[in-house]
Design a protein around this nucleic acid. Structure first.
Length: 224
DNA sequence: GGCCAGGACACCA
DNA sequence: TGGTGTCATGGC
């Protein structure tokens, strides 16, 4: 473990420190781009462990495809995703997303991915139930577009170290990352994965930061 | 038994 | 434009 430094680190230094500590996370898990998109919707305000159960249920019921979700009965879908919480809302959101995918891209995320990044993001945000974070999860991890995902952990971790203001809007924070992190899909994926792992381990709402690999950097306690 | 988790949206001032 | 209530399950 390197000795602590007294100045603020750069965004790439933080990335390298986390990568050294955890190694590659390989985030986001999923056998197909569609599974990743479904996970992005199901994980809204929900622990990933609960999402895993829901995805397993969808696989077991053989409905983890756009057509599977659209053709199964509503209560079958709701029952399958129940473990991920907000199951009525999320069933609705999955159906709306699948309908969009089928009507516009023959149910193929690969076709959707070909669209221009800015255009596609605007399109995703127009879908009910898909906000900025979910849209960016889909863009980066399912479609392979260079978009940095900002989540609650990103706010907590980077405001704690004074690199951003936690009160900033989503787009403002994202712009800072785009300006300061190498524009590379693999780097964006890995960086966000590392943030999630750090957040889960050290940065819950009641922070137990002891042992966090970022402890070597100064903290802005007012922002935590 | 209470708190919290990788959000998004409707409604209101 | 910003603040607040709502949606729900599972782990600790």
């Amino acid at each position: 473990m390197p000795r602590s430094v007294l100045r603020k680190p750069s965004f790439m230094e933080v990335y390298k420190t986390l990568l050294r500590y955890y190694g590659p996370t390989g985030w986001w898990p999923g056998d197909t781009p569609f599974e990743i998109a479904v996970g992005a919707i199901l994980t809204q305000n929900t622990a990933w462990s609960n999402v895993e159960r829901a995805i397993e249920n969808l696989k077991r019921s053989n409905i983890l495809t756009p057509f599977g979700i659209l053709s199964c009965k509503r209560d079958v879908l709701e029952e399958a995703i129940r473990p991920s919480g907000y199951f009525r809302q999320k069933a609705e959101r999955l159906i709306i997303f699948c309908r969009y995918l089928v009507e516009n891209y023959a149910g193929k995320i690969e076709l959707m991915s070909k669209k221009d990044t800015v255009e596609l993001r605007k399109e995703l945000l127009s879908i009910k139930g898909i906000g900025e974070e979910t849209a960016d999860d889909i863009l980066l991890y399912a479609c392979g577009h260079p978009i940095f995902v900002v989540d609650a952990y990103t706010r907590r971790i980077f405001s704690r170290h004074g690199l951003i203001n936690g009160m900033m809007k989503y787009g403002e924070i994202q712009k800072i990352f785009h300006k300061n992190v190498t524009e590379d899909v693999q780097v964006y994926k890995e960086y966000h994965g590392l943030i999630v792992w750090t957040g889960k381990q050290f940065c819950r709402k009641r922070p137990k930061c002891e042992g966090c690999p970022l402890d070597i950097y100064p903290k802005n306690f007012q922002m935590t």
